[in-house]
């Protein structure tokens, strides 16, 4: 009956998951601003109200994400790489490879049967192929990123998006718009470009089933379809896929509590 919290401070959103008895009992998602400590606190408070629990019921708070050191009220910090592995394993125990596409980075993580990281690879030099890339390009098409998921379905002739720079890709998209290309085809081209960058990372760790797709971009149906098609494998996507890092963090805290009794 131990309630634990994981708080995942990403580059665009803060997520919190509360876990009790192997179940996610509360969660929250809110955008981050410039005051990360407050954002982290708010994430926990919102998740608590979602679950109807009190702050004092929480036995451990674990921070993860690039802002993990801003979860100053927590007990532990773990990198999001470890957390995505653990969280994905929790949701899909047969997971061997996790693909996480977040706001500013993309990671491929290889995990063992216990959800422990064996190997990982991340985008390095720039933000090409990340959630932000999609965000910016959706903007260039005149959509919000939350709307574009189903839009590529039915694309017939996906365009080729070759620019690696997010900002230049935006102008490439604009030029396709100006040339009267079907937004379906442009989006399909964008998905293809992001998936091909993701595949390159997946190749580094080696692809084997099952593959679990996590992070904000996994909410996009078009991306999931494109990934499935290109991998030729089924891809797990949980309705909680944005919370995988937070779930993993909470589980790490639990494990730590069990290893070192209070």
């Amino acid at each position: 009956m131990t309630l634990v919290a994981g708080v995942d401070i990403g580059s665009t959103t803060a997520k919190c998951a509360l876990i009790e008895d192997g179940k996610v009992v509360g969660r929250s998602l809110n955008p981050v601003g410039v005051e990360l400590v407050k954002d982290a606190e708010r994430a926990l408070a919102l998740a608590l109200s979602d679950s109807g629990r009190e702050r004092r019921d929480v036995r451990a708070v674990t921070g993860t994400g690039y802002g993990r050191f801003k979860v100053t009220f927590g007990q532990f910090t773990v990198t999001e790489i470890g957390c995505h592995a653990k969280g994905a394993h929790f949701l899909f125990p047969a997971t061997r490879v996790v693909l996480d596409i977040g706001g500013q980075d993309t990671k491929a993580i290889k995990v063992d049967a216990n959800g422990v990281v064996i190997d990982f690879a991340m985008n390095d030099k720039c933000a090409a192929g990340t959630g932000r890339f999609l965000d910016v390009c959706a903007g260039a098409l005149g959509y919000d990123v939350s709307e574009i998921g189903p839009l590529s379905l039915g694309a017939r002739r996906p365009v080729k998006v070759t620019n690696t720079c997010t900002v230049f890709a935006e102008s490439e998209v604009s030029s396709y718009v100006a040339r009267g290309k079907d937004p379906k085809d442009i989006l399909a081209g964008l998905y293809g470009s992001i998936v091909s960058r993701s595949l390159s990372l997946l190749q580094r760790v080696g692809v084997e089933p099952e593959v679990t797709f996590t992070g904000g971009v996994s909410r996009n149906e078009g991306m999931v379809r494109t990934l499935r098609a290109r991998l030729g494998l089924p891809v797990n996507v949980s309705p909680l896929s944005q919370f995988v890092g937070a779930i993993g963090a909470a589980l790490y805290g639990l494990e730590r509590l069990e290893a070192v009794p209070a």
């Binding site: 690879a121 390095d124 030099k125 091909s196 595949l199 390159s200 990372l201 190749q203």
Partner: peptide, 13 residues
């Protein structure tokens, strides 16, 4: 030719 394997072996730059 789309690059999806070679990046991993060679490097970015």
């Amino acid at each position: 030719v789309e690059i999806s394997h070679a990046d991993a072996a060679l490097g970015s730059f």
